[in-house]
């Protein structure tokens, strides 16, 4: 099994909103889907998930509705709101920009001559 990673701070909201874009889900399903869709690489601790859900609810990006679960249990479902959808669009853009930037830096650093980077501290040391 691949090593599990905690979902990056700040990206959890994005993932939740993305999952809710297609259908209403309850908390457990959200945690399951995150781990499933990320091929079990990403793991959401409940300690983070529920506070995040309740925060989103508070910001009115999602609303909560009570429904019946697969096993016929009363369950709290989360549903994305209009402002949640807008937030999803802008957050997705922001994330992609960020990811591209990180990728660029990584690629640039790998191609640059080794000295270019290691020189800087040395010069500082002389003066």
């Amino acid at each position: 099994m691949a090593p599990k990673e905690d979902v990056l701070r700040g990206t959890l909201d994005l993932l939740i909103l993305q999952l809710l874009e297609h259908r209403d889900l309850h908390g457990w399903a959200i945690s399951e889907q995150i781990s499933e869709l990320s091929e079990e690489i990403l793991q959401v601790g409940q300690g983070a998930l529920y506070p995040a859900l309740h925060r989103l609810e508070k910001r009115r990006l999602v609303t909560a509705v009570w429904g019946r679960s697969e096993n016929n249990r009363r369950a709290k479902y989360y549903r994305i709101t209009r402002s949640g959808e807008k937030e999803l669009v802008s957050e997705t853009e922001r994330w992609e920009r960020l990811a591209r930037a990180v990728k660029l830096v990584l690629r640039g650093a790998a191609n640059a001559p080794a000295g270019a980077l290691s020189n800087a501290p040395a010069t500082a040391g002389v003066s």
Binding site: G45, Q46, G47, A48, P51, H54, E57
Partner: peptide, 17 residues
């Protein structure tokens, strides 16, 4: 066990609410 965190997140949820 997986649920983890014991009361911490619960208090957090409470605070949020």
């Amino acid at each position: 066990l997986r649920f983890g965190g014991q009361g911490k997140w619960r208090d957090e949820v409470r605070d949020v609410d």
